[in-house]
Every structure is written in C-alpha cells, then in structure tokens.
Simulated scan of single mutants.
Amino acid sequence: MTTLLHIDASARSGRSDYQPHGSHTRRLSARFVERWRAARPHDPVLYRDLGANPPPPVGGDWIHAAFTPSDRREPWMDETLATSDILVDELTGADLIVAGVPMYNFGMPAAFKAWIDQIVRVGRTFGFDRSREGAPYWPLLTDRPRKLVILSSRGDYGYADRLRAMNHVEDGVRTALGYIGITDVHGVAVEYDEFGGQLLARSLADAEAEVDRLVDRLTRDAAPASCRAA
C-alpha cells in the first residue's frame, strides 16, 4: 500500500468549492486525496492541518536539544522535541506527501515554515559529521522512494514565468525536502485569486484538471501491496 500524508497550511478554514472565501489549496488537496482514495481505497491517509494547528516555532532550547545526542538528553529536551518527533514520524512513515501550500507575501505560510523547521532535524532526517569527507551533511530519508505534491495558490499570475523570481514557495519547499531526501516533486497552482471572475474560474478549472491527471498518473505508478512487501 501507499501511505499518504495530507497537509494543509492555509489560514482559511474552508474549501473554495464550498465556501465563498474558502481556501483554494484546501480545495485542491482534498480533491487530490478524494480521487486517490477512489482509485486506491485501502491506502492509509494521515491528515495534518497546519493552518488550524501550527507547530511551535523553533527556538534556542529546541536547537540545544536537537543537537544533543539522544543518550545525553535531559528530560526537558525530550519534552521540547516531542512535537518534532511526532511530525518526523508522520513524514518518515509516508510514501506520498500531499501539501496545500498557498503563497503568502511571495513565500510559504509561517505555519508551513514552522513545520519544515520541526522536521528538518539532525539525526532524524539528515546526518551531520564534521569529519566526513566532502559535504558534512547527507539526507536520511533515502530508505525508500517518497513523492511530494505541492498544491499552491497565488493572488497574481505568471509566477512560473513573468514573476518567477518572486516565487519563493515551490523552490523553498523543494529545497528543504530535497535536503532530507525527498526529490520526486510534482506541483499544481491556482492563480488570479485577487482578480476573481472568469480568470480565477478558468485557473481553478485548469488546476483541478491537472490534479486529476496527476492523481491518475501517480496511482498507475504506485506499487501494489505485494510489491512493497517484496
């Protein structure tokens, strides 16, 4: 089976296909997962709503605890890393991460950045050794293939070309997740949110059709349970 980790990071609480001011990324991520479940009903799905329940930001105590070897940690250090442990376990247990990540002021929402800071962690998702020949860092999530789907939305348009230099969403997510070993990345985005009208409606329809095609392609590529077990 394929385990999905479904993440939403929008501060908007609803879906734009059901609520007038709902989230486009929640709409796309829900569509992706619903279509996946229709094709593969036995695949487990874990849901994490970062928009409603953002992880705490990383602070000095967190850094101190994370860089302390586990056998030398004090009780307060384990408590400080408890949320990180949960989030890392969710990520490492997933085969496919479906992330709704809207653009806020040209970058990812703070809640999603806090999630990244919690899961990019020495000894858990990347290794570090000063004495290692070459680069002292290496990814730890290379035990099996994992895929990442980034579903985004933007107020303006042209962030794949005209405004490419101002788009720090997909590259920011790709860089962080690639650093720990997740390099198979796919993406779909809605644009024209601030324009509304037919421009937005057309962009939403195009994005939904692209999501459908992506799900169809990825479900065809997904290995059956017997192959995973082998």
Score class of each variant (00 low, 15 high):
Glu133Val: 00
Glu79Gln: 10
Arg144Val: 08
Gly155Tyr: 08
Gly22Thr: 15
Val169Asp: 07
Ser13Phe: 04
Ile7Phe: 01
Met108Ile: 14
Thr183Gly: 11
Thr3Lys: 14
Phe112Cys: 08
Leu46Phe: 09
Leu141Cys: 08
Ala9Glu: 12
Arg217Ala: 15
Arg202Met: 12
Pro145Asp: 05
Arg174Gly: 12
Leu141Trp: 06
Gly14Ala: 10
Lys113Ile: 02
Pro75Gln: 13
Gly100Asp: 10
Ala65Asp: 11
Gly134Asp: 01
Gly155Asn: 13
Ile180Lys: 02
Glu194Val: 07
Arg213Ala: 00
Val98His: 02
Pro20Arg: 04
Gly196Val: 14
Cys227Met: 07
Ile7Pro: 03
Lys113Met: 07
Arg132Lys: 06
Gly59Leu: 15
Ile119Gly: 05
Ser23Asn: 02
Val211Asn: 05
Glu34Ala: 10
Ala189Phe: 02
Leu87Gly: 04
Glu208Leu: 11
Gly51Tyr: 09
Arg220Asn: 06
Ser23Tyr: 03
Pro139Thr: 01
Ala111Asp: 06
Trp115Gln: 03
His186Pro: 13
Arg130Thr: 00
Leu163Pro: 06
Cys227Leu: 09
Ala66Gly: 05
Ile97Gly: 02
Leu218Glu: 00
Arg12Glu: 14
Leu204Asp: 04
Arg228Gln: 05
Leu177Thr: 11
Ile182Lys: 07
Ile150Val: 10
Asp85Trp: 13
Arg72Pro: 01
Leu148Arg: 12
Arg130Asp: 00
Pro109Phe: 04
Asp71Tyr: 11
Asp212Asn: 10
Val215Asp: 01
Arg12Leu: 10
Gln198Cys: 03
Trp115Asn: 01
Ala201Met: 11
Val215Cys: 02
Leu148Asn: 11
Gly197Ala: 12
His42Cys: 06
Ser84Lys: 15
Pro41Val: 07
Ala30Gly: 05
Asp206Leu: 02
Asp184Tyr: 13
Arg162Tyr: 05
Met77Asp: 12
Gly60Ile: 07
Leu151Pro: 04
Ile182Gln: 04
Met1Leu: 09
Ile150Gln: 01
Asp8Asn: 04
Arg35Asn: 05
Trp115Thr: 01
Leu141Thr: 02
Val185Cys: 08
Asp212Arg: 11
Ala135Lys: 07
Asp78Val: 10
Ala110Ile: 03
Asp184Gly: 13
Ile7Met: 02
Val120Arg: 10
Pro69Tyr: 12
Tyr157Phe: 13
Pro54Met: 05
Arg73Val: 09
Ser23Val: 00
Asn53His: 15
Thr25Ser: 13
Val211His: 06
Trp138Val: 04
Gly158Lys: 04
His42Leu: 11
Leu91Trp: 04
Val88Trp: 15
Gly155Lys: 12
Gly100Cys: 15
Ala39Ser: 12
Thr83Glu: 08
Lys147Ile: 12
Lys113Ser: 03
Leu87Met: 10
Glu133Thr: 00
Ile97Leu: 15
Leu28Asn: 08
Gly172Gln: 06
Ile97Met: 15
Asp117His: 12
Gly134Lys: 01
Gly127Gln: 02
Arg174Val: 14
Ser226Lys: 15
Arg124Val: 08
Lys147Gln: 08
Ala223Leu: 15
Asp43Asn: 05
Asp156Phe: 04
Gly134Ser: 04
Gly181Ala: 09
Thr25Ile: 13
Glu74Asn: 06
Arg154Thr: 00
Arg37Pro: 00
Lys147Asn: 06
Glu191Gln: 14
Asp95Gly: 14
His168Leu: 12
Glu170Ser: 07
Leu177Lys: 11
Met1Glu: 01
Leu148Gly: 12
Ile97His: 04
